[in-house]
Simulated scan of single mutants.
Amino acid sequence: CKNNKGICHLKNGKSYYEFLVKNYTGSSKSVLELKSDIQSRLMKDMRTMYSILTVNPELENMFYSEEHKSKSPQAILKELNSKYTDDFPNIGNINYTVKYVDENLQDYLSPAFFLTPAIDDTNNNVIYINKSDAFSKQDIYTTLAHEGIPGHMYQSAFFIQTNPLPVRHILSYGGYTEGWATYVEFLSYFYEYSDQRLAKALSCSASYSLALYSLCDIGINYEGWSFKETKDFLKNYNITGDDICKNIYQTVINEPANYLQYYVGYLEITALKEKVQKQLGTDFNLKDFHKSFLTIGPADFKTVEKWIYTFY
């Protein structure tokens, strides 16, 4: 490889990264504006997390525990299916199958993923689970909320029920789809844990981690950070392991702007929700907001915002 650093070290790499960010996220903001938004959210999550945990030592012990409930994926999806209608429109039963990744592919695939059904076979939804030991400490509950209900599978099923033109199935808006799945993943902590303070702390922690990776993405691929500069940045947030720093550094070099479609998408949805909530005050209804967002289907966020205000 001629370049083992961020994409900005290539000819026109910085401009290309700006294009990738716009294309992946669907946001109209510049890279530096997005960086500022990410930093603001990171600090907000950090303050919230520590304010919750410092008050209650018992809660802090639960927060740092690596034990996760041992429910089967099928049981988790069934539970999520029974809970999601409190906050999201009910679209009836979704037909799906849970499958497991072949052992030979476990090292190369994510913890779980949803296969979007073919447009002529929309009832054939499949969620794959990766049983690799590398993911044994990962919370499968929130992962299945991301991939299943009310994440990708639910979003896909909702979109299909709007009877969209076939061409819309091939248009890709990563910020909209991955942003939604990230948004509901963070929300699913409140379904998983009865103690809502713990759920809030865990949700902020997940958001905080993804914000750090997103800032590394911008730092390495747009600002040209070296590995040492990346390590120094992560050290400020108590991430010091050489292996994890190398992993983050290499991951964002391999897939520039990938983290941003998840996190910027999440931030755009959150900002939209807060804007509508501020405008409507006590008349704001979370389920109606989710319905308005899902009804338009995949699009850039300027278009989504116009649609949402038409909806209201």
Rank of each mutant, 00 (worst) to 15 (best):
K2T: 14
K2I: 14
G6W: 04
I7P: 00
C8M: 14
K11Y: 09
N12I: 00
Y17G: 01
V21P: 01
N23W: 07
N23E: 10
S28G: 08
K29Q: 10
L32Q: 12
L34M: 11
L34F: 11
R47W: 10
T48L: 15
S51L: 07
I52G: 07
T54H: 04
V55M: 03
L59Q: 05
E60W: 01
F63P: 05
S65Q: 06
S72A: 08
S72K: 14
K78C: 04
E79N: 08
S82E: 15
S82F: 05
K83L: 14
Y84H: 12
D86I: 08
G92N: 06
T97H: 11
T97S: 12
V98K: 07
Y100Q: 13
D102E: 13
Q106C: 01
Y108H: 03
L109T: 14
L115D: 03
T116Y: 11
A118Y: 14
N125V: 04
I129V: 14
D133W: 12
A134W: 01
Q138T: 12
Y141P: 05
Y141C: 07
T142G: 08
A145F: 13
A145D: 08
H152M: 03
S156P: 00
A157E: 15
I160R: 10
L165K: 15
V167D: 05
I170W: 02
I170V: 13
S172Y: 12
G174M: 07
T177P: 00
E178P: 04
G179E: 07
W180D: 02
F186I: 08
Y189F: 15
F190N: 09
Q196N: 11
R197K: 15
L198S: 09
L198I: 10
L202I: 05
S209P: 00
L212P: 10
L212V: 06
D217T: 10
N221W: 08
S226Y: 02
S226C: 01
E229P: 02
T230Y: 03
K231D: 03
K235T: 11
G241P: 04
D243W: 10
I244G: 02
I248G: 02
I253L: 05
A257E: 05
A257M: 07
Y259D: 05
Y262P: 11
V264M: 06
G265Y: 03
K273W: 00
V276Y: 09
V276L: 14
Q277A: 09
G281E: 10
K287E: 10
D288Y: 06
F289S: 05
L294S: 01
L294H: 01
I296L: 09
A299K: 14
D300K: 08
W307A: 06
I308M: 06
F311E: 08
Y312T: 06
